[in-house]
Every structure is written in C-alpha cells, then in structure tokens.
Write a protein that binds this DNA or RNA. Structure first.
Lengths: 180, 180
DNA sequence: ATTCACATGTAAGCAGTTACATGATTTT
DNA sequence: AAAATCATGTAACTGCTTACATGTGAAT
C-alpha cells in the first residue's frame, strides 16, 4: 500500500491528474518509488472510494479532459497515521548477484559483460541524480523543512548509486584479473 | 522467476532439502536474495514438474523424512541460458524515503526516530556482513572462481549497507539541526 | 503519413506475503 | 510442561507487470 502514500505525498505538494502523477513518478519521485500509469490510475480509484482524495473533472482547450485529484482531510490524516508507523527495511533481492554467484556454471565472460553493462547503467543514473542536485539544490546548507527533506531523499539515491558503481568497479577489476 | 535460479545456484553448490534451502536463504543467500519456506517449497514443486531438479526421499534416524533435491541436466542448461540473458537493475522502492519526503505533513520527530531505527538496523546488518567476510574470506586477494564470486556478492552487501549507514547518518545530522 | 504528447482505463497473470495446518524429537 | 528444531505443505490475498484498448491534437 506504499504507493497510495507516495501518491498522497506528491498530491499534497501539488494537486494533479493521473497522467501528471505518472510523469512525476518518471522523474522526481522515481528516485525513491517507481510506479506505472496503470498502477497509479488503479490506486487513485481506490483512494477516491476511501475518500482520501477528491476528484474534479477539468475540461481543457485543445486537450482531452482530465481529472484533478486533491488530498482531503481523511487522506492527510491517513498519511500522518502511516508516517508514525514503523516499517521494515526492504527485503534484499538482487538478480545480478544471483548471476555472479552462479557464473561458474555458465559463461563467465557473459556475466562479466553483464556486470559492465550494469556499471554503466548505474553510473548514468548517478550522473542524472547529481545533475538534479546541482540544478535544484545549489546551496544545500541553507535548506530546511520540505526542501531539506526532498534533498535528503535525493542524497539517498546518490549515495546508493555511488555504492553500486564502486561495487561493480571492484567486481570488474577482480573478475577480469581472474579471467586474464 | 529469479527465485528458481537462486535455488538452482544453491543446489548446484550442494544438494539439499526444502528445509535446508530455507536455512541457507536465512543466512548466506539472504544477503542477495530473500525467500520464505512457502515460496521455496512451491518453487521446488514447479522445478520438479519442469524436470530441472530431481527429488529423492530420504528416511532419517530420529528425524522426519526429507526430500533431497539435485540439479539435473535440464536445470543446469536452463541456469546457463538464464545467466546469458541481460536483466534490468531492480526498480527502486524505498518506503523510508517516502516517509522522509512526507515528514512535513505528519510528526517530523516520529520520522527522525524511524530514521534512527533504520540506521541501527543497517549498521547491525553491516556488522554481520563484515563478520562473515572476516570469517569466510580472511585472505581475499588469493581468491578465484566460485569463492571469488561468493566474496564479490558479499562485498556488494557490505558496500550497500555502508552507503545506507552513511546516508542515514547524514539524514540524522541535518534533520536534527533543522529541528533544534 | 507518422510519431509524439496528452489522457484514461481494463484484464490476465505472476511473484511474494500472511495465515493456516500438521506432526515428531530434542532441549530447557 | 513449554519451547525450539526439523520437516513439509495449502490457500487466500496483495501488489506489480505486461498486454490490450481507445481517442485527440500537435509537430515532423
């Protein structure tokens, strides 16, 4: 049910349509919670039923109508209640690690290639996060409240991607030394 | 379907029962793939149907009978095929980040407490991983093949937990400065 | 003409979680 | 007497993915 709360957080920052939320999940929210438009529309439907959000249909000029969702009192209360509830850290499930661990049975070269590819993907994501940080938080020292929290979450993404790149570099070094 | 492949990797290192596999997933395999006994039994059943593994019932002295599973030719081939296939990095879904991002709506103190709790959990996991490394890989320089791969996967866990602890320390510092 | 951005959905299927279920032996 | 370890399962439910489905207007 975390998706509902991620949506509440986003809508409470600014009201918007399902489509707009999907765009936000592709960008800013994407670095801590991933969601497709199918999931988002389904969740919004549920949240209207629960009366967590209200829905206004808005006619647009030269564009299809849209439904703008807003967080209601019950939604804000529900979010506050959820925030106070402890959660477990996410369960660890890393497909690439399964592949590395199984490399001996198959083609080790292929797995090394795959590690190199992931190294590149993570390094690209890291670059994107750092660009966002430079653009949106040029002076992180002075931040407070909501902006501080937004920056912190981005920092989490950056530190996590840095760790991935370091790990995969280490992996490539020792795997290639072992091969050649 | 990655669970099936994680099981194949484990069984190919050593044959074992569902119960034994569940123990392995609680320990060594747990730092790159989590699985409950319910999942494992279900997957083993499927894998027998697919003829990826064979199953022998073994009577034991003073203990319930057990079923020992072994990787067959088809299973080894299937694992090799899967190893060669590229996969995407896992989708990012971090509940704690949602909470940090939403902290303003609720009780910020409560969220800070939760961050401190997660900091401790990750630091405990990090200590456990480091202990495993010292115990099982006292001389990492000389490793090759399967042992090298096992060590690399553990290194991934260590670097990832280090990043989490760093991030949560950073978060606690700035959140507490912002409060007080 | 085709592709892109806008806009909203349904439905089948798969993976994982939670709860339920049973029973022997060993340790405290 | 109670709890822990060994041992194997079923079933309902939740959440996410993938595929399908439709339609407008603007840009190339």
């Amino acid at each position: 049910m975390s998706l509902e709360y991620a949506i509440l957080v986003s809508l409470q920052e600014r009201a918007g349509s399902g489509y707009e939320l999907a765009r936000r999940f592709d960008k800013s929210i994407g670095y801590f919670w991933a969601a497709s438009h199918q999931q988002i529309y389904r969740s919004l439907k549920r949240m209207v039923e629960l009366d967590w959000v209200s829905c206004d249909e808005v006619a647009q000029d030269k564009r299809p109508d849209k439904k703008v969702y807003r967080v209601g009192e019950a939604g804000a209360a529900e979010l506050a209640r959820w925030l106070a509830k402890p959660v477990d850290p996410p369960t660890i499930r890393n497909e690439l690690s399964v592949k590395i661990r199984g490399a001996c049975v198959g083609d080790v070269d292929g797995v090394v290639e795959e590690v190199a590819r992931h190294r590149q993907l993570h390094s690209q994501r890291l670059a994107a996060f750092r660009a966002l940080e430079r653009r949106d938080f040029p002076a992180p020292e002075g931040l407070s409240g909501q902006q501080l929290h937004q920056h912190l979450v981005l920092r989490g993404g950056i530190l996590s991607e840095e760790a991935m790149v370091s790990w995969l570099d280490e992996a490539l070094t020792v795997l290639r030394a072992d091969l050649g």
